[in-house]
Design a protein around this nucleic acid. Structure first.
Length: 478
RNA sequence: CGGGGCGUGGCGCAGUCCGGCUAGCGCGCUUGCAUGGGGUGUAAGAGGCCCUGGGUUCAAAUCCCAGCGCCCCGACCA
């Protein structure tokens, strides 16, 4: 880790990713295998993700609450598919306070069961519906192979859990939250995700239907970046979540759940990052602008720092950091803040003091091309425009990259070729779990989603040759 | 769970095959001086149960046995 430069993406993508996460001080390995410490810079990014999402949740009528970490083992067993899906990856507590527990507790892998249990107590009438609760928390899934942010034993996320009177309302909620994730990803994180439906075999254990936002990473692998599930009445029946309707008839509720995790930080890293390091979208960046003062002599320092303070004052609407360390050179700071993905760098030196100017360097355009010299006067407007431009440019670049790497093979042979080299396949698909399993087996590509946006009409399934009414994305995934 | 790699100052490694002097190197860290518009130079310092346990030997970082841990690649997953 003493090398100055990161391993280039093209040389070893996962090495690039690991080095970047650690050197940008987003996260570090914990003493327990598969666990991570989210460092202050990474957590600050997560906090910005949280507030962008939380605002959207609140705007659509959701409220936050907190449910316990421990769940009685028996709860999980009440929903058949759910327990089958999660059993292999549970952490189980059998001893508490020094003595064996009567019933083992599981550390929540997700909270449908315990929230379902509580909902059954809280919901009695149609007047109690809909119930729209979100929780920010952590969960534990005992994964075989782990990677910082992308898959760790413990991760942080939000999980929304709602209960509704009708199937239609539940489906509307599920789709609404998918839209919120899509909007968040595109407009806050500049990650051009594709919203769609999961196939039967890829859906959440216990769901009727699962929806997902899928993103293409810099190595063209897909990353499921958020999910929204229509749980039908599965959990309502397992946990007796019932209400009396207007006609005094007892009905089971229709429930949903939806989640987005710290994995999304991985999506941001692998969507925008380059060989210099992290590139953060301005709207989520913990530091939007870093100011690097440049001077040699004491009298220069005084004048430069005065200008720095003045300019900083003009930028009070932004998240600004002044890097006033004297023990490292400006060049060192340039590289360090680029590694850490700060969208905009502002340099102020003696020449700028003389000319009332500053040097601006934008992170999304490396080298000289991204540098410009602008007046100190009105800098707040210059900077606002440039940050907006960076935000837009990141989305445009990522969208272009994604689209360039989506292909539409007509045959399975072409499909295999593309999966091996060039990214994603967008194909006519006649849903069939066995065929899907065979494709996965032979190519390691999975059905990422059946997108909401469809061309319409029908086509010939690339695999079975049967008539298909929809197109689907296939790709190798994280 | 299969395959591979690796445990030596904070970090990255050399030394291990073929046992032997005071365990080296780079980075980082501390202090001084110079430097400062793209990873500064220089000088002096600080810092080691060589993963753990056992064995072989006059002598073990090095050989043998056992264990633990981490990382990477696959099967499974937000």
């Amino acid at each position: 880790m003493d090398e100055k430069k990161l391993t280039p993406k093209s040389e070893n993508y996962s090495e690039w990713y690991n080095q970047l996460v650690q050197r940008a001080e987003l996260a570090d390995y914990a003493p327990v295998r598969g666990c991570m410490v989210v460092r202050p810079y990474g957590w600050s990014l997560w906090e910005n993700i949280q507030s962008a999402l939380d605002r959207r949740f609140k705007e659509t009528g959701h409220v936050n609450a907190a449910f316990p970490l421990f769940i009685p083992m028996s709860f999980l067993e009440k929903e058949k598919e759910h327990v089958e899906g999660f059993s292999p990856e549970l952490a189980v507590v059998t001893i508490g306070g020094g003595s064996e527990l009567e019933e083992p507790l599981i550390v929540r892998p997700t909270s449908e069961t315990i929230i379902g249990y509580m909902y059954s107590k809280w919901i009695q009438s149609y007047r109690d519906l809909p119930l729209l609760i979100n929780q920010w928390g952590n969960v534990v899934r005992w994964e075989m192979r782990t990677r910082l942010f992308l898959r760790t034993l413990e991760f942080y996320w939000q999980e929304g859990h709602t209960a509704h009177a009708t199937a239609e309302e539940a489906e509307d909620e599920t789709l609404q939250m998918l839209d919120i994730y899509t909007d968040f990803a595109r407009n806050e994180a500049a990650v051009p995700v594709i919203p769609g439906r999961k196939s039967e075999s890829e859906k959440f254990a216990g769901a009727v239907r699962s929806y997902t936002i899928e993103a293409m990473m810099g190595d063209k692998k897909a990353l499921q970046s958020g999910t929204s599930h229509n749980l039908g009445q599965n959990f309502a029946k397992a946990f007796d979540i019932q209400y009396l309707d207007e006609n005094n008839t007892l009905q089971h509720c229709w429930t949903t759940s939806w989640g987005l995790s710290t994995r999304f930080i991985g999506a941001i890293i692998m969507t925008h990052g380059d060989d210099q390091g992290l590139v953060l979208p301005p709207r989520l960046a913990p530091i939007q602008i870093v100011i690097v003062p440049i001077f040699r002599k004491d009298e220069e320092q005084e004048k430069v720092m005065a200008a720095v303070e003045r300019v900083k004052g003009q930028l009070s609407d932004f998240k600004v950091k002044v890097d006033d360390r004297t023990e490292v050179t400006p060049g060192f700071k340039f590289n360090e803040w680029e590694l850490r993905g700060v969208p905009l760098r502002l340099e102020i030196g003696p020449k700028d003091v003389a000319k009332n100017s500053v040097a601006l360097a934008r992170r999304d355009i490396p080298g000289r091309d991204g540098k410009s010299f602008v007046a100190q006067e009105g800098i707040e407007h210059t900077v606002a425009d440039m940050l907006a431009d960076i935000q837009a440019n990141l989305l445009a670049k990522a969208t272009q990259f994604r689209d360039e790497n989506i292909h539409e093979p007509a045959t399975y042979d072409e499909f295999k070729e593309i999966i091996n080299n060039d990214g994603w396949c967008f194909v006519w698909w006649k849903e069939d779990a066995l065929n899907e399993a065979q494709i996965k087996d032979e190519t390691r590509a999975t059905l990422r989603c059946i997108p909401m946006e469809q061309p319409g009409g029908t086509g010939k399934c690339f695999f079975s040759g049967e008539e298909a009414r929809q197109k689907a994305y296939f790709a190798r995934a994280y």
